[in-house]
Simulated assay, not measured.
Amino acid sequence: MNLTYAVDRLVDTGWSPDSSMDLDTLPDGRRYPSVMAVQQCFARAGLELRIKHNLMFSCYRATWAPIGEPLDDQHVADEKHGTVIGSCEREAAVYAMAQLRTAVRERELALV
């Protein structure tokens, strides 16, 4: 996976750039949320997002859970919990946001 793939997955969820959001730019000109913007998005949803560099595997792990709940990389993924891996901090953050949006959308569809 790479940052372009993560941005593609985020766009697939219906996300589009918001002028009030801190955005970065891919080499092809497409805009995507910065790591800080992603963390703010998670916080507004009542979730904590932690991104850690794993030196042993040279990757980044993004894990999220409700604020105040211990972050557990092994927790079953749902609309409030998850873990993703990326090759850089930005990739992990953007892919985490895409996964969260997908889980929330799937939950909403199941309630209909």
Rank of each mutant, 00 (worst) to 15 (best):
C59K: 04
R44K: 05
D28L: 08
A43P: 02
L100V: 11
S87Y: 05
L55I: 03
D72I: 10
F42R: 02
Y95L: 09
E91H: 02
V35E: 07
T83S: 15
M21S: 08
K80F: 13
P33I: 04
R44N: 03
L26Q: 12
E89S: 15
H81K: 10
Q74Y: 08
E48V: 08
D73Q: 14
C88M: 06
P70H: 11
R30Y: 05
L55Q: 03
F42P: 03
T63I: 14
I85D: 01
H53W: 09
A37V: 05
V84G: 00
A96Q: 04
H53E: 13
S87G: 15
A62I: 08
L26E: 10
D22Y: 07
P33Y: 00
A43M: 07
Q39F: 09
A45Q: 01
E69R: 11
E89R: 06
H53N: 15
A96Y: 00
D73E: 14
M56P: 00
G46F: 01
K52D: 11
L71W: 09
R101L: 15
M56S: 02
V84H: 02
A77W: 04
E89P: 11
A96R: 02
I51W: 00
A65K: 04
H75C: 08
A77T: 13
G29M: 06
I85H: 01
C88E: 04
S87A: 13
R90E: 12
S20M: 12
D28G: 12
F42M: 02
V35H: 04
H53P: 07
C59S: 10
S34L: 08
D72M: 08
L47E: 04
E91C: 11
R101N: 11
V38M: 00
H81W: 05
H53G: 09
G86N: 05
V38N: 02
L49T: 00
R31S: 05
Y60D: 01
L71T: 10
Q39C: 13
V76G: 06
L49Q: 00
D24I: 06
S20V: 14
C88G: 13
M56N: 05
R101Y: 13
E89Y: 06
V38Q: 01
L71A: 10
M21G: 04
Y32R: 03
C59T: 07
P33C: 00
A43Y: 07
T83A: 15
E79H: 12
M56K: 05
F42K: 00
P70W: 09
C41I: 01
A62H: 00
L71E: 13
A92I: 06
A65S: 15
I67N: 12
Y95P: 03
G86P: 06
A43N: 07
R61A: 10
A93H: 02
R61D: 14
S58M: 09
P33D: 04
W64F: 14
A93V: 01
A77S: 15
V76I: 10
L71D: 12
L55P: 02
E91N: 14
M36C: 08
R90S: 07
S20Q: 11
R44Y: 02
A96E: 02
